[in-house]
């Protein structure tokens, strides 16, 4: 219980934001209308994904310094959990875009950035599966992970600010001022961010523990 309290917090926060997100009043804005509620789900899911991808890149960096198998496992499983969240983020974004922009997908720097992120991590998984030797796989995929993560950050953070974008929060500083959030919205949005990030980390932790157990039982390997 001492170790697991944050999982309960995560569950309660997400449960609260799902109920409050649908029931509490939101500002009436043109075009956005009720779809502004998507900010409670779509944006926190992206924050959670970015957190997981950063964890993945950080553990890749750790691996290059300490060569511990555990670092490699964490880095790989964080990327796996992040990909699940990125699919959720794409789906929620796509549904939202259908009702505000009138299309499921459009050529926009933010959307292209997401597609590229997805391709990068798929390439990372394929690179991992192409090498049978464990240490070699860990080292080479760590190098690619760090390289690809930095390029992804360059794309996701810098390019959308260079060109016009339809996406809310663009045009200069991507702050939340553009969402025209009022205080009621903030009361749901911030817990949602914390909740989803914790859920993502929980997902990662379960995957890491499964992988560690698998290696222990199948290969009799302590990590």
């Amino acid at each position: 219980m001492k170790k697991n309290w944050w999982k309960i917090v995560a569950g309660l926060l997400v449960l609260y934001t799902i109920v409050a997100g649908f029931l509490l009043p939101v500002p009436r804005l043109d075009i956005l209308n009720e779809t502004i509620r998507n900010v409670y789900y779509h944006v926190p899911i992206w924050f959670s994904m970015l957190t997981l991808m950063s964890v993945s890149a950080f553990y890749s960096l750790m691996y290059l310094f300490n060569q511990k198998a555990k670092s490699d496992v964490v880095s790989s499983e964080a990327a796996h959990a992040g990909i699940v969240l990125s699919v959720l983020g794409i789906v929620t974004g796509s549904v939202w875009a259908r009702y505000t922009w009138g299309t499921w997908w459009t050529s926009d720097t933010k959307l292209n950035g997401v597609a590229i992120t997805f391709l990068i991590y798929m390439a990372y998984f394929i690179l991992r599966s192409s090498m049978p030797d464990e240490q070699k796989r860990a080292r080479i995929s760590a190098v690619y992970n760090i390289f690809a993560f930095v390029m992804m950050i360059v794309f996701v953070m810098i390019l959308p600010r260079m060109s016009a974008s339809l996406h809310p929060g663009n045009g200069g500083n991507p702050a939340f001022g553009k969402y025209d959030m009022d205080n009621t919205m903030r009361m749901v949005f911030y817990p949602a961010c914390i909740g989803w990030i914790l859920i993502g980390l929980w997902l990662m932790q379960i995957r890491v523990r499964t992988e560690v157990l698998k290696r222990k039982i199948l290969f009799d390997e302590q990590i």
């Binding site: 390439a123 690179l127 192409s130 690809a148 390029m151 360059v154």
Partner: peptide
Amino acid sequence: LMAILSFPVTLPLLLV
């Protein structure tokens, strides 16, 4: 593998 690995990473600079 070379093509899979490099395409997504070259895309940012390619778009610019």
